[in-house]
Every structure is written in C-alpha cells, then in structure tokens.
C-alpha cells in the first residue's frame, strides 16, 4: 500500500484526473483505510476552494477609484503616443 506521503504527492494529479488506473486504485485504497489522509484531502480541496472564492467574492479588494494622479499619468501617456 502507498504511504501517506505518497498519497499527498498524488493529490493534484488525482484531482486533475491524471492518475493511471493502477495509481488511482492505490490512491483510493489508501484513502478508504486512512482517516488522516481523508481529512488531508478534504482540507486540501477546501484550500483550493477558498483561494478561488476569496478573490471572487472580496469586493473589499477593489478600490472605489484609481488615484487621480495615475488616471492623469495614463491619459498623458496616451497623448504622447498619439498627440
């Protein structure tokens, strides 16, 4: 049977459907027998979900407006390109 360390190494490939049949069977067999690895996989998946959601939902991240000096600098740069 594969070890917890080996299972952890396979997680990304497992989630991306990249494991070969024998590797997938070994992965699932270990998972069925190891509560620690089930918890690890679950929290790994939650981590990925949180990473996505924290930027999707976080309106606090977006400033209300761009600083005026930056707006002016951008518009000035355009004028220099196309006077």
């Amino acid at each position: 049977m594969i070890s917890c360390r080996e299972l952890a190494d396979f997680i990304r490939a497992y989630l991306d459907g990249e494991l070969a049949f024998r590797e997938r069977v070994a992965f699932k067999t270990h998972l069925a027998l190891c509560a620690d690895c089930r918890a690890y996989l679950k929290t790994y998946e939650e981590t990925v979900r949180m990473g996505k959601q924290v930027f999707e939902e976080d309106a606090d991240e977006i400033p209300e407006e761009v600083p005026e000096d930056l707006v002016q600098a951008i518009l000035e740069s355009r004028k220099k390109l196309w006077p």
Binding site: S3, C4, R5, E6, D36, C37, A39, Y40, K42, T43, E46, R49, M50, G51, Q53, V54, F55, E57, D58, D60, E61
Partner: peptide, 30 residues
C-alpha cells in the same frame, strides 16, 4: 520515517463558503 503524517490532519470546522462569510477570515486567507 514510515511515511505517516507527523501531524495527523483534522477536518476544518466549516466549509469554505461558511468560513469566508467572515470578512476577518477573508483577510486571513489573503
């Protein structure tokens, strides 16, 4: 050495959606 987790994993106290309802947790994740 035998390949087992040195600090056995535990599940978290809530799902991502629930955890991220808190502004403080969103700031923490970031």
């Amino acid at each position: 050495n035998n390949g087992h987790q040195a600090d056995p994993a535990k599940r978290w106290s809530g799902h991502a959606d629930r955890i991220l309802e808190s502004k403080q947790n969103r700031a923490l994740v970031r």
